[in-house]
Computed example of a mutant assay.
Amino acid sequence: MDRYLYDENDAIKNPWEKGIPYLTPVFFNDEVLIHFFKLKRFSCEFASETYGFIKFDGGYIPFGINPNKKVIMWYGDIKKFANDDIHNKLISENVESDHDLRSEFYTAQINAEFTDVIKEVNIFQLIDKINELTSKNYGFKLYNMDQLTVNSILEKVSRYKQIMYDNEDDFKRNISELNEYLIESVSKNNLKSFFDKTGIPYDSNGGSLKLLETYMNKVIMDDKNHISPLYCLYDFRIWADHTGCTEKYNYSVSRLGLSDDSSYFKIYYKLIDDLIKFYEYFYYFLIK
């Protein structure tokens, strides 16, 4: 563990601790997060542009990003990786302290001011991993999306961090945007080429969602309709963009298991939770 660069003068010390204090900040290039984006055993959750969690089987550790784009972790937390293959990757990104701890990470960790994670960002990370796996397993990217970078993730964190007020305009705006990312960005051409090569029958006039459903049914053999939340999203978008489509809104609310009088806030986050479950199901199938 002593191979890490750190400055004990940065530490938050407790008089009863011996050796290097647990709360000694260790600094890294921001690219260190890419390792956790990509590795199957890990995921990153963000509560803000400067605060998040690295999750893995059996636990998680918090991290921060300071104004100089340096990632900060506590020395005591990093020790959890001492016998792990991620250890050398961390060391390769370790840099000298710049002594700047300003971040929501620091505020939350020291002052116990906690923030909920931004769930939408989890969806984009899952899609990024799905794209890598469909490329590896089947030779094509499922989504027409660029590979995630730290900057692109932080842009999405900033975008979705905003509080969604419980009104129709905010709901419609977010629904339309997610529809563009999660449905319209599905690569129809790649899916059609894949179906042609493998002899899987499909509707040549079908849109992105119908083609994705064919993939789920014929390749993943999903017989439990895990794709349902995407159809809810699609119908919400139809309602948002056209008049006279209230029945689509009501049907989608019902499919989410909610009552007609549910708030937009409740509907939106139930949809997000169900979308995450869909993409997790998809991802874990691909890594089997």
Rank of each mutant, 00 (worst) to 15 (best):
K80H: 09
I65Y: 06
F81G: 05
P21A: 10
E96G: 09
F265A: 06
L211N: 14
S262L: 14
W239P: 09
K156Q: 03
L212P: 13
Y165N: 08
L90K: 08
S254P: 06
N174S: 03
K79A: 14
Q109R: 11
P229F: 05
I110M: 10
E31L: 08
I127E: 03
F124L: 03
S158T: 00
P21T: 06
D223T: 06
S252R: 10
Y283H: 11
T198A: 12
Y281R: 15
Y60D: 03
E45Y: 13
N217L: 07
I183T: 05
I12S: 07
I86D: 07
I227L: 06
T50R: 01
N88W: 12
I272Q: 10
E93Y: 04
N68W: 11
E93T: 04
K210H: 12
N217D: 13
E184N: 09
S193V: 13
H242V: 07
D273H: 03
A240H: 04
L211C: 14
I130M: 11
K224P: 14
I163T: 00
Y249W: 11
D116H: 01
A112Y: 14
H226Y: 10
I61L: 09
V26W: 00
Y251C: 02
V186K: 01
N122F: 04
Y75A: 01
F81D: 07
G206Q: 15
Y181C: 05
N29W: 04
K224E: 15
P229Q: 08
R3S: 06
D57H: 09
K224F: 14
Y215H: 13
F114P: 03
E184K: 07
I163D: 01
P15G: 15
K13Q: 15
F28Y: 02
L275M: 07
